[in-house]
Amino acid sequence: MTDRADPSGARERRRLPQINPVWVLLAALIAAIIFMNPGFVEPTGYMNFLKRAAPLAILAAGQVYVITSGGFDLSVGSLITLVVVGSSMLTNNDPAATYWVVPVMLGIGVGVGAINGLIVCFLRVPSLIATLGMMITLNGLAFLWSGGAPRGYLPDTFRFFGRELIRDVPLVRFIPVSVIVLVVVVGLFAWLMHRTNLGRQVHAIGDNPVAARLAGVAVNRVRITAFVLSGLSGAIAGILLGGFAGVSTDVGTGYELQAITAAVLGGAQLLGGRGSVPAAFGGALALTAIFTLLNFLGLPQPVRQVVQGLILIAAVALAMHRRKQTGT
């Protein structure tokens, strides 16, 4: 940085890697989808896409906090299941119950996150094991609560968040409520991560916890907050998913891994120190776009799995390669 009179070529080279590759990937995938299905440029096309991506994107935004702080949260998938099953039990087909069930569910999310964080911080159990135990426990609780066979529907007032559309909006004709939730939550999480002290502290404890503690960061409090935010995102995603998927005991299965995949696609560094909420959002959209594309191509579920696996490995390998080249 000493000589500011860099030839523009060198500066160009330094600036180039600053575009997160996830946006390039996303642009390419969307171009491919539009090519396959021109209807995608209509509001119905892309709004439905965003609506479908909303739960995963919200989860990924929460997961980024935990990953950046150096941990994992494997419990969000079963938290989603618990939220969906629990809401159907609590509302009991009564539309008026929504107004207290939604806060209760958000409370459960916060509580689960807090317990995860407390176990990691004070019992010193590695988060992989702690949240794995939580995942098994929550799955069991969901079964226990519903007696194994979840019944009933969620009332329409509850499904409002996941399913309803706000019509007669200028420019785009309609906006699904879930997309509004998505924008608000991701915006809030991004602000918290990149514009506040909390975000900087999350990065610090993920990068070097000892240095962060010596610098005066309340490591435990920040770590617990990260888990709480992840739990909260799980509960919100569960409420959205309850709106468009039915009530079953496997709605959340696999979401924890997809959320980690999305965060990693967005360049979050496993074991901490680096992560971005907008990029994780991009990663979630890219992952959903890949699934959409594979659907258009008429590929069956097994192929989707293989592609997801390959992309996961390739994305991380590429990130490591870039990191080695740029020397960071």
């Binding site: 176990i119 019992l123 010193r124 159990v125 590695p126 988060s127 069991g140 226990l144 194994g148």
Partner: peptide, 29 residues
Amino acid sequence: DSFAKQVLRGIIIVAAVAFYAIRSKRIVA
């Protein structure tokens, strides 16, 4: 009950690891 079994199992895994991890002074994540 098999569902309660699952719940207990999750708790036991965490508790068993905590049993000796709690003594370590390291910061874990």
